[in-house]
Write a protein that binds this DNA or RNA. Sequence first.
DNA 1: TATTGTTATACTCTATAACTATA
DNA 2: TATAGTTATAGAGTATAACAATA
Lengths: 145, 145
Amino acid sequence: MAEKTEAPSLVDGLFQLSFRLQSLLGRIAAKHELSLVQVRLLGILRDRQPTMLELARYLDLEKSSLSGLVDRAEQRGLVERVASADDRRTSHVRVTAEGRKLSRVAEQQVNAAVSELVAVLPRAEQQKLATLVGTIVEQLLAAQR
Amino acid sequence: MAEKTEAPSLVDGLFQLSFRLQSLLGRIAAKHELSLVQVRLLGILRDRQPTMLELARYLDLEKSSLSGLVDRAEQRGLVERVASADDRRTSHVRVTAEGRKLSRVAEQQVNAAVSELVAVLPRAEQQKLATLVGTIVEQLLAAQR
DNA sequence: TATTGTTATACTCTATAACTATA
DNA sequence: TATAGTTATAGAGTATAACAATA
């Protein structure tokens, strides 16, 4: 395994890109007076109405951390708690119309910014990158099950 | 290689990978009772002794945020402030021997974890990924100047 | 006056532990 | 007893504004 250190390593590169993406996301979130976690919350709620506990798992947080998070989002009218019919202990979290609108705008801005970022690569290379990243992510999801 | 149902977009994939990397980094940091930012701080100090203001720029934080960050790291004996000779307003931040030791261990663990993550790709594909990511990151650094 | 850094203050985010209500 | 969620509490991380020391 004689590896030559040409350019930065894959690991370094991935982290630099990762930090930049987080920073980009944070900046766009801030423009809408949202935190990064709130944006992630809205992103998750795009096509789900999870319980608090499920949300905690998605975000990798303690359930107690969710209470405040959802509280603040609810106070801003972005999400709402919905009582569960079958189990009166649980509540589901649902995005509101306003939350969805905000989420859509932010998503478009993020998409535009990231597209600009990868625009340095020719079309075919972007495709290749998508495939490679997709393979890694797919494996992650598979490992989770 | 069979066709996949519907490849997730490049943007989505990049963010999923990014979140996973952050989470991975945070977990390893936590094992050493460090926050993610503290790990980034140590990483930056690996080959630099920047001023507080320069550090703020690296981390994309306000200078006031740096004071507390460096305070806490200094109290743990991981970094130290060094008075500047030519400008008595500025101090440089330097990693201590202990900080460097901790940083090295964490770095190895991160490297191992990420290597495992990309191990799903064959050697040549990893190389390709490194090149693609490297191109994007390089452009970012160039744009910063 | 301008720059570097700290302090005061307030808020978000997070975890642990204890609690309530329901199962 | 066990589970879903909240509350109490404590601490890190962050920003804005005001400040002190130095340039």
